[in-house]
Structure formats: C-alpha cells, structure tokens
Nucleic acid binder design. Structure first.
Length: 543
DNA sequence: GTGGTTTATC
C-alpha cells in the first residue's frame, strides 16, 4: 500500500475517472515476432535483434573471426539503447578498427544521455583520429551542443559547407535550431534556403524559429505556404503564439486544428496557466478528458503548477489521486510539481511525504523541498535537506542557493548564510546572481548588520535592482538607520516600491515635507493602489 | 549498425 493513499480523499476518484477508464490500452503490437522471422546472415546480430544480448556476447567473445566492425557497432548500439553507456564506452575503446558509424553511434549515445561535455570531447578525439564527419555526425553534434556549445554552430556550419553537406535535411534542421538559439534570423533563413529537398520538419523548424525570434507574422505566413502540415506544425504555431503572449490567437488556431494530441492540449493549458488564467486552464483540462485524450506526465505537471499558482488545494488533491491511478507518480516532473503544489498550498507534511517516497530525485526536486521548507520558516530543515542533497550526489544550482539563502534569512542564520554564499562559487562554480545578493542583503539587514549589507550592495558586480534596494530599505526601517536610507534615495532608480518605502521611513522620522515629496515621486513613477481581493474561491488551507 | 520538428517540474 502506498503510504500516500491515506492522504488522498477517496471522493477524488469520482471525478473524471469514468473518462480515464474508458481510454483503452491499445499498445499491444508485437514487433519482435516479425523481426525474429527475418533471415540474418550474422548470428550475433540475430541475437541482438531478438534482445538476447548474453547469447550475442558469448558468440562474440568466443569467435574472434566474427568480430567485424558492423558487429561491434551492433553490440555498442544495444548497450546504448539499454542505458548502459559505460559498457558501450568500454567496448568502443577496445575496438581494433572504428568506422564513421562507430563514432556516430558513440556520439549519439552521449547526446541521448545528455552529456554535452563528453560529446564535445569525443568529437575532438574523432577529428584527431582523422575521421571525416558525415551528415549523421553533424546532426548529432549540433543538437547535442544546443544548450552548452551553441557558439560553435557557425564554425560547424563552415565545416558543413566545406564538406558539401548543407543540403541535407537533417543537418539543415539541426543548424536552423542552432541559429534560432543564437537569434540569427538571417542565418536561419539562409540555411532553410540551402536545403534543396525540404520536408515538413524543415518547414516546422522555420515556423518555430520565427516564433522564437518574435516574428509571428512571418511564422504564420510560412505556415500558410507549407506544402504539407502535420500535427507538429499546428502545435508549433499554437505554442509560438503563446510564447509571444498572443493567447487568443493561439486559442483560435487551437480550435481550428483538424486534430489535437496530448502535446497540443498541454501546450494550450500551460499557456493559460502561465498567464494566471487558471479557470480557462482547468476548463480546457476537462475538455481534454472529454475528448478522450489521455493526460501524460507533462499535463499533470502543468496542472499542478496551476494549482500551486493559485493555491487550489482540492483540485491538487484530486489530481494527486488521478496520478496515483495512472502510475505517473514515478515521473520526476510529476512528483516535483506535486511537492511544490502541496508546499504552496500549505500542506508541508504531505509535500515531505511525497518527497521521501520518490525513488529518483533530481536537482529540481531537492530545490522544491528546500524552497518549500524555507518559505514555511523551517530553516533548520531546509539546511538539513541541503546536506542530504549533497550527500546523495545531486548537484546544487543557482535556484538551490536562492532557496538555501532565503532559509537562512527566515532563520536569522547569518554565519550559515555567509558560509554558503562563499562556498557556492568556490566549490560549485555557481555565479552569484541578483537574487543571491538580495538574500544576503536581507540576511545582514534583518539581523541588524546594516554596514555589512551596505558594503555588499556597494561591492556588487552589477547594478542593484528593486529587490536589493528594497531589502536594504526594509532593514533601515527595522533598525531606524535613516542615514543609510538617505543614501539609497540618491542611488536607487525611480521605482514606486522604493519611494513607497521612503514615504514610510520619512513619516516615521516625522519629516513630513520629505515624506510628501517621496509620495509625489511615487505617484510620478506610476504607482497604483492595488485592488484588494482575497480570491476566496481559490484559497484552501493556505497558511 | 548512426540523424532532425511540438508540451517539461524549482
């Protein structure tokens, strides 16, 4: 029995379950039978195709004559497909003779396991070995470099032109993705033109590229000109409009689509949720269930995110029961969103319970639990979870440290905070960003160490933002440091929040003329009285 | 025996 069951309302199962149960599981095609009837010349490859790796290895290890390059490659491919990169790499290193396919298989392995540094190293090693890259090589490495070594795209493009591989569809769409990331619209279009025989993916890459760069009109025109469109083209269009803030246009495309899949539905739901339109997000989810489209882990994650955003505890709870039923709790994105939802709805106990029950945790999961504890004032617990995170081998990132430092602020743990602030760069190479500085200023400020706070603001490698100035001014108010506050007045950029704080400070000091002056400045900078609202229709169990 | 397009949690 899952320990979480007792936490979930049984009534939750009533909702939508009839629809979930109706979806039949039709994935039962039996491909392996078909493959096993094929005649294969090499018995080792036959065993691999039938999934009998041990038989294959036995033959391979016993008969040196059977070990041609294709066989080596087949075995390495098998290991990569079964997530055994280390085995694959060992075999690759032992190969007496490698061909271009061997290199490409290994490169593809590093790409699939999301290891851009190893991918890069192997590519350099391949060049040193004198192997000439082909169109497979380029499509693999460009897509693998997209997040880390994207600066190399123009250089690789040069090499591609030199080798005459620019007209290949796969190379073309990989390059287009690369140039989209580099925000080079001209190059994007040039690569598109160079692909002689374009297919639907090439066109899709152009639509996505234009959308990413903010050219919605060009994207739409491209879509209209497309000789063939598929569901991905439509979804890219919907998603592009959402990314450009044109949610109504996205919806109109969405409504006119000839068919939709789970990705399309999820993209549209996310569009609403991101724009704080939670009602439409949920309504759309209900329509999705009615259309018999089965939600996947991204859909649930998106919906839980919406619940977290407006503290919809009951719906979050119901979603939890659906997730348990569909077996999607094992997905890291789902359980992480679930933790965040429970934390933001105030149920720390269940949030921690979900977290403890997770088999696989990643940096984001640790971040949400550390952040949740920090927000609820459980500073010691947050620090403790951080220690456990390090012990588990997970790597902290910038968000981890924002959460950790804010835990220190809540707990008034100045020394701890100082220590972590130093260690984050020294041990983990994480550069301190604006938010880390504002945490530190807040930490010093709240504990009365105004000089240290002021010194840090002066020493910051970039212009402080409202958050940093706000933290400093709050400290001035708390500890009646009017001199420092006067200094801030001359330095802080025009911002209603800053002036509003200064009004309060001058008022407390009894300097009414200065207070009025600040109030006028505040109004000039566009301050508006906020509409009061409890949003009672959403709030359940918020602390 | 190798490759490209849509949703992705803090």
């Amino acid at each position: 029995m899952n320990p979480l069951w007792h936490k979930v309302h049984w009534s939750s199962f009533i909702i939508h379950n009839h629809i979930l149960l109706q979806s039949p599981n039709i994935i039962s095609s039996n491909c392996s039978c078909f493959i096993s009837t094929l005649s294969v010349t090499n018995p080792i490859q036959g065993h691999i195709r039938n999934g009998k790796i041990n038989h294959a290895r036995q033959l391979f290890d016993q008969n040196p004559t059977s070990r041609d390059t294709v066989t080596w490659n087949s075995i390495i491919t098998y290991y990569i497909k079964h997530n055994q990169m280390q085995y694959a790499h060992n075999l690759f290193d032992q190969m007496p003779k490698r061909d271009i396919v061997s290199w490409n298989i290994m490169l593809s392995g590093f790409n699939k396991t999301n290891n851009p540094h190893k991918l890069h190293q192997l590519f350099l090693q391949m060049n040193r070995a004198g192997e000439i890259p082909n169109h497979f090589t380029f499509s693999i490495i460009i897509s693998g470099f997209i997040n880390t070594f994207n600066v190399l795209v123009p250089q690789l493009h040069g090499l591609i032109l030199h080798l005459g591989l620019h007209s290949n569809v796969f190379v073309g769409s990989a390059l287009m993705r690369g140039y989209t990331r580099l925000k080079d619209c001209e190059a994007l279009h040039r690569v598109f033109d160079d692909v002689v025989v374009k297919d639907v993916s090439t066109w899709n890459a152009l639509v996505v590229g234009y959308m990413e760069l903010g050219f919605t009109v060009e994207a739409q025109m491209t879509f209209n000109k497309m000789p063939d469109v598929n569901i991905i083209s439509w979804t890219s269009l919907v998603n592009g409009y959402i990314k450009n803030g044109k949610i109504n246009q996205a919806r109109s495309i969405f409504d006119n689509m000839p068919q939709k899949n789970v990705v399309t539905w999820t993209a549209m739901i996310k569009g609403y949720a991101q724009n704080d339109n939670y009602i439409d997000a949920i309504n759309l989810f209900v329509s999705m269930l009615e259309s018999a489209t089965r939600p996947n882990h991204f859909t649930y994650s998106t919906l839980l995110d919406a619940c977290a955003g407006c503290s919809m505890f009951l719906l979050g709870n119901q979603l939890h029961s659906c997730i348990l039923k569909t077996g999607l709790l094992c997905e890291v994105v789902v359980s992480t969103s679930l933790i965040d939802m429970y934390m933001k709805c105030g149920d720390i106990e269940v949030a921690l319970c979900v977290f403890e029950s997770m088999e696989k945790k990643n940096t984001v999961s640790w971040n949400s639990v550390i952040g949740g504890c920090a927000r609820h004032g459980l500073a010691k617990r947050a620090l403790c979870e951080f220690e456990k995170m390090i012990e588990s081998g997970a790597k902290p990132d910038n968000v981890t440290y924002i959460n950790l430092l804010s835990a220190c602020v809540h707990g008034g743990l100045v020394e701890e905070g100082e220590r972590h602030f130093k260690l984050m760069g020294m041990r983990y190479g994480i550069k301190a960003e604006m938010k880390h500085y504002s945490c530190m200023v807040d930490l010093y400020g709240k504990s009365g160490e105004i000089e240290k706070a002021e010194k840090l603001v002066k020493e910051m490698p970039f212009e402080p933002d409202v958050g940093v100035w706000g933290a400093l001014l709050t400290a001035c108010g708390l500890h009646s440091c009017y001199e420092v506050a006067n200094g801030v007045e001359n330095l802080a950029r025009d911002h209603p929040t800053i002036y509003s704080m200064l009004v309060k400070l001058h008022g407390e000091k009894g300097e009414w003329s200065r207070a009025i002056e600040m109030r006028n400045k505040m109004m000039e900078t566009g301050a508006r009285k906020q509409k009061a609202g409890s949003r009672t229709e959403f709030v359940h169990g918020v602390t």
